[in-house]
Design a protein around this nucleic acid. Sequence first.
DNA 1: TTTGATTTTGAACGATCGCTCAAGTTATTA
DNA 2: TAATAACTTGAGCGATCGTTCAAAATCAAA
Lengths: 194, 194
Amino acid sequence: MANTSKFNRTDVLTKASTLFWGKGFAGTSIRDIQDTVNMRPGSLYATFGSKEGLFKEALTSYTNQMSGSLDHCIGQVENPIEGLKSFVSFIIIDSQQNNPSGICMLYKASGEFMGENQPLFDFSQSLIQQFEKRVIGIFTDAKQLNFLDKNFDEANAGQQFIIQFTGLRNYFNGRNDPKLAHKLIEKMFTQLQQ
Amino acid sequence: MANTSKFNRTDVLTKASTLFWGKGFAGTSIRDIQDTVNMRPGSLYATFGSKEGLFKEALTSYTNQMSGSLDHCIGQVENPIEGLKSFVSFIIIDSQQNNPSGICMLYKASGEFMGENQPLFDFSQSLIQQFEKRVIGIFTDAKQLNFLDKNFDEANAGQQFIIQFTGLRNYFNGRNDPKLAHKLIEKMFTQLQQ
DNA sequence: TTTGATTTTGAACGATCGCTCAAGTTATTA
DNA sequence: TAATAACTTGAGCGATCGTTCAAAATCAAA
């Protein structure tokens, strides 16, 4: 006893997150989204409540996509740190050109909302924290698999990783130099395991 | 034979750059600026031409302010690298709370304009490149003053510096932990000179 | 004090913003 | 097939956007 939705929620969120990622929250209009996901405002608002609600789901979708990509890289090899490295290479070298922005959407969002929109800032930050914990967990796994010393400080390595990864993404936003990128990624992982 | 301007251009640009830095280009309206700098749209447009023109000058003003702060830090000590370190500490630890954003305005701008506004993206990138060259110059100075080895690679150190500095600013956007920040800055400079 | 070049003012333009909702459409159940 | 609940549509709301420009105000030179 009803009509059924005609859109694919996952597909809509992927397209919306691509838009938001590239143009930012303030820079993306509901009409931009309408045109891209082929939904009328009524449907959009019935489904996501507001522009902010849609953004939250789009950011979560982005994070899940990243997380899935990281999981995939880790699953391919024995040493989790090798997986982490290939993830970084994939992001910095391979996908930079196709992405709507060279900057991680989480940091772009966090940067846009700080001091302007506390709830959305907090939401972005919580996803960032989540990612840092995931990375620390990877170092813990590597340690248990004897790829790292028993007294290796994985919390510190997690911090260093986030800082360097973020820095690298910013650095290669607009720059295209795979050879240099490869060199800097090698250096990054050497420092992490020093 | 004329009327004279009543506003202080430097003051207006400082206030405008604070606004733009915090809220972003798209998130800042001309009316926001009107209210903050106390100028009517006619005067603003006669002076700066457009919102984009004003932004360019505001971004330049921000860069000059940063540059001046760096020069000041370097001038205080013998070893330019010590000066560079105190500049980083000043930005990350001391001024983070008072700033409208924890993220460098240059990177925030570059991130916002990429793929959306090529001229403004290029403009931001050129200022970023300029800053990297300035940092490399500091390492060169330190080398000539015998604070660094004769075969120290200053171009590589400049890259590493930019990456870590950017990463740290992002990391401490929203986080407030001066002790951790100090620890990570020490680590950063150890790695740079290794 | 008058003149005239320059600056400031602020109402208002058309476009676009986020968002609403009554009307229309669609699929399921009775 | 008729009834009904769920979903989609799109015109249009009031607010705000970047920008313009004629009129008013201002100050230096004549």
